[in-house]
Amino acid sequence: MSDTAKVSAPPRRRKSASKRRANWFVASFLVLPVALYLILVLSPFAQAFQFSMTNWNGTNPDYKFVGLENFKKLFTSDLYSVYLIPALKHNAIMLIVVPLAVIALALFFAFMLNVGGKSRGGRMRGVGGSAFYKILFFFPQVLSVVMIGILWQAIYRSDEYGLLNALLAIFGVPLKSSGWVSDPSLVLVMVMIVMVWSSVGFYMVYFSSAMASIPAEIYEAAMIDGSSRVQTFFKITLPLLFDSIRTAWIYLGIIALDGFALVFIMTPQQGGPDHGSEVMGGVMYNFFSNGQAAMACAVGVILFFFTLTLMALSMRLTRRENVEL
């Protein structure tokens, strides 16, 4: 009786009719989602690799195979390497600075929320209003990157009507004549500030729930042993959160590589001024919109391997034994 009913553990005995019915059912439920996913997600990824070795312009059906010609052009021709090299450099900077800054700030805030408050009877508490801070800090995460970009573009306006300049004027700071995002040496920093601003809340909530799962007794024991909060943080909280931090690092890496959308919206000439904020996604988009689809795919492939290498490297560097509670 229970043999036929237990769908997750099929019967040992062969019950061909009901088994066949179950198989049909499984197939009927899987065929649409799998087909859609294969055609619209996996096949374009595979094609990107294929197209990167052709001279396809995006529309001509009779493109031909050119081998690694596109990659050679990208790295050697002056026309292209003037975009590509700064873009790779900027992506690398973002990939290091953004995760570091976000994780440091998010950990700090999460620690404040969980154990930064008054301790009563040796038990550490979070600061008051931690629920409010969580709701507020998380909010940028639900905003579109477009909205964030436009909002900050307005904040960074180079005239005295932008929020940043207006606030600085209150403190008597003179107007910066070169502007914020129109200064080639500053633009990347300004974009990264926005990335950090929008991500800190999410990782604060994420680390905060991980911290809440650390038993209070461990903190209490540390307090009784005379450990300061700073010591507690570095000796107890940080090691126990190691896995969450590594996950956060990987996700932030992906976000940093996606920085194109922000650059596209916020910066002059979408990657400027003077290629000061050029990123790989932007280089790719320019090729795509100029009818050089094959080159765009080649850039995508380079970025893909660049990401893969960095991810593997960071996984390798951070590999260690788990701490068991």
Binding site: S43, P44, F45, T59, D258, F288, C297, G300, F304
Partner: peptide, 13 residues
């Protein structure tokens, strides 16, 4: 997978 890698072929599909 990063979405941007699929964009160009997706457009043609």
């Amino acid at each position: 997978f990063p979405v941007f890698l699929a964009l160009v072929p997706l457009h043609s599909i």
